[in-house]
Simulated scan of single mutants.
Amino acid sequence: MKKRTWIFAGFLAGLIFFIASWIGSINFLMGGTIHSGDLIDQYISFFAYFQHTLLHDFSSISFSFSNGLGGNTAGNWGYYLLSPFNFIALLFPTKFLPQALYIIILLKVMVASASFCWMSKKLHHLADPWAISLAVAYALSSYVITYIGNLMWLDAIAFLPLLVVFVTQLSKGHFS
């Protein structure tokens, strides 16, 4: 059976992030809050609107007075729904959106670690301890932690190692 060190790296980064955010009082699941970035003001209000529109009033999907002085919301829908993780917000009642957003952040940190570990094994054939250590360091770097308040930026961090692998494969002619 082939080893899946990238799964371990993802869970390890998630566990460390969970504990560190609990200690730092930014873990929404444990009563903390995040005061930086657009998370509280922008993302929670949009996801509340997202839930209301999709689950209760689908007719308001194309126009909203909450969009400035009123206007088309197609750009907003496109921006926010580019991330597949954002659909997790639909699984939670509106009053638990901060917890949903924390779970989304936690999953993105885990995916960042897992994808970096996979990249380091695929491209550099690193030994498991090195690959896991570098992956956890990447996922928990200060750059990542700084951007937890800006939810959309975490997608780029999570998927960048996958993009590096695919571009490397493409440059070697391994893809048609």
Rank of each mutant, 00 (worst) to 15 (best):
T5Y: 09
T5D: 09
F8I: 15
G14P: 02
F18A: 07
I19M: 06
I23R: 08
N27V: 05
L29H: 11
M30F: 10
G31W: 08
G31S: 09
I34P: 05
F46G: 02
A48H: 08
T53P: 04
L54Y: 11
H56W: 13
H56T: 14
D57P: 00
F58R: 05
S60R: 07
S62W: 14
S64F: 03
F65N: 08
G68K: 04
G78F: 13
Y79V: 07
Y80K: 04
Y80I: 04
Y80G: 06
A89S: 15
T94S: 10
K95Y: 12
F96M: 10
F96A: 11
P98C: 13
I105N: 01
L106E: 01
K108I: 04
V109Y: 03
M110A: 05
M110F: 00
V111E: 03
V111D: 00
F116A: 09
F116M: 15
M119N: 05
L123K: 09
H125W: 08
H125L: 13
D128W: 11
D128E: 15
D128F: 08
A131R: 08
A131K: 03
I132M: 05
I132W: 01
S133T: 14
L134F: 12
L134E: 12
L134D: 05
A137M: 06
A139F: 03
V144N: 03
T146V: 12
Y147T: 05
I148D: 01
G149C: 00
N150L: 06
W153D: 02
A156L: 11
A158T: 00
F159I: 00
F159V: 06
F159Y: 04
L162S: 04
V164K: 06
V165N: 04
V165D: 03
V167Q: 10
G173Q: 10
G173P: 07
F175Y: 15
F175D: 06
S176N: 14
